[in-house]
Simulated scan of single mutants.
Amino acid sequence: MDIDAKLADLGLTLPDAPAPAANYVPFVQSGAQLFVSGQISSDQNGLILGKLGGTMDAAAGAKAAERCALALLAQLRAALNGDMSRLVRVVKLTGFVNSTPDFTDQPKVINGASDLLVALLGDKGRHARSAVSAASLPLGVAVEIEAIFEIA
């Protein structure tokens, strides 16, 4: 699996693994599972802020979720000391969407992350998932996603 080549084909690169913003670690390995802390939506311009159903639509939210997926993969790469061949599969994503009370397209937003992981990893990227609404998220970001990976 050459994730860098697939990223390049999509015009994407992995960011540096973001440092924790508080008193927690970015990932914890327990046996063959790697738990990656929630990654908030950001890109080269900084945080991706917004409220779905208010200042942001589902398509923009999906792009924010895609950025979260890239950060999750960056944390995975850091945890594996760069050896992405150790990835067995993506087990589960939990996605949080900063949304208005009447917004109901949380799954469409988190599809941004899910679709990217499958595009990059094939069947290894298929996962269980939750997509839930949040009244607010840290720093006003649009999306936060955490992941569980199985590793060798």
Rank of each mutant, 00 (worst) to 15 (best):
I3M: 08
D4Y: 12
A5M: 03
K6G: 06
A8L: 15
A8D: 15
D9M: 04
D9N: 12
D9P: 00
L10N: 08
L10K: 12
L10S: 05
G11V: 14
L12N: 00
T13V: 11
P15L: 14
D16L: 09
D16R: 07
A17V: 05
A17C: 13
A17N: 10
A21K: 13
A22V: 08
N23A: 15
N23P: 13
Y24R: 13
Y24E: 12
Y24N: 13
V25P: 09
P26E: 00
Q29I: 10
S30R: 12
S30H: 11
A32L: 14
A32V: 14
Q33G: 02
Q33I: 07
L34E: 08
F35N: 15
V36R: 11
V36T: 09
G38T: 09
Q39L: 04
I40N: 05
I40M: 14
S42G: 12
S42M: 15
D43T: 03
Q44E: 15
L47A: 10
L49N: 04
G50E: 03
G50V: 01
K51Q: 04
K51V: 01
K51C: 06
G53H: 02
T55V: 01
M56K: 08
A58P: 00
A59M: 12
A59Y: 02
A60M: 05
A64W: 01
A65Y: 07
A65V: 08
A65R: 01
L70W: 06
L72W: 08
L76A: 02
L76M: 02
R77L: 00
A79C: 02
A79D: 04
A79S: 10
L80T: 12
L80W: 08
N81V: 09
N81T: 02
N81K: 07
G82S: 12
G82C: 04
M84D: 11
R86H: 06
V88P: 00
V90M: 07
V90H: 08
V91I: 10
V91H: 13
L93N: 10
T94W: 03
G95S: 12
G95E: 11
F96I: 03
F96H: 13
F96Q: 07
N98H: 12
S99C: 15
S99A: 15
T100Y: 05
T100A: 11
T100H: 06
P101W: 14
F103G: 02
F103C: 00
F103L: 01
F103K: 06
T104Q: 10
T104G: 14
T104H: 11
P107T: 12
P107R: 03
P107V: 05
K108V: 00
N111I: 02
G112T: 10
S114W: 06
S114P: 08
S114M: 12
S114H: 14
L116S: 02
L116W: 02
L116Q: 01
V118F: 15
V118S: 12
L120S: 09
L121Q: 00
L121Y: 03
G122S: 06
D123K: 08
D123Y: 02
R126A: 14
R126D: 05
R129H: 09
S130A: 11
S130M: 04
S130Q: 11
A131K: 04
A135W: 00
L137D: 07
P138E: 09
P138Y: 04
P138L: 09
P138M: 11
P138H: 03
L139S: 10
G140Y: 01
G140K: 03
V143F: 00
I145W: 03
I145D: 01
I148N: 03
I148D: 09
F149C: 05
E150K: 12
E150C: 10
A152D: 14
